[in-house]
Design a protein around this nucleic acid. Structure first.
Length: 110
DNA sequence: GCAATGACCCTGG
DNA sequence: CCCAGGGCCATTG
């Protein structure tokens, strides 16, 4: 396993309940802005082994990437249980739940 | 080693 | 809002 993969796993494990991150932002934080697809692949293959909160990772437009029949439905259930607002159309309120570490640091916790 | 693949993303119609 | 096309890049066959 390479460093990028390790960082991605570490970042995902740090996402607090009630918040979400996008594939692209995770890739960026892990040092590879263009590797959003690799992030998705890592989730697909490493979730079971590393006990990751995979449901907190969504698309940049706030929609669920995983097809409903492949777990997307379960993802919505898990997010809702954590307090994340998922609209009827399957989209998430990014302004409210997007986890941005830099933002929190600048605002000293808020 | 080359070709295909994908839980993505962006632009334009 | 929905669809198409192109770019992206590590993993897979």
């Amino acid at each position: 396993m390479n460093d990028f993969t390790k960082r991605v796993i570490d970042i995902i494990k740090r996402i607090p309940p009630g918040y979400v991150m996008t594939y692209g932002s995770i890739a960026e934080c892990a040092g590879n802005p263009r590797a959003s697809r690799q992030v998705s692949r890592i989730l697909h293959s490493m979730t079971a082994k590393y006990d990751l909160p995979w449901h907190r990772v969504i698309r940049k437009d706030g929609s669920i990437a995983l097809p409903n029949e492949a777990g997307g439905l379960e993802q919505i259930v898990l997010l809702t249980a954590e307090g994340v607002e998922v609209s009827v159309s399957g989209k998430i309120n990014m302004q409210r739940h997007f986890w941005v570490e830099a933002f929190l640091e600048e605002n000293d916790g808020l």
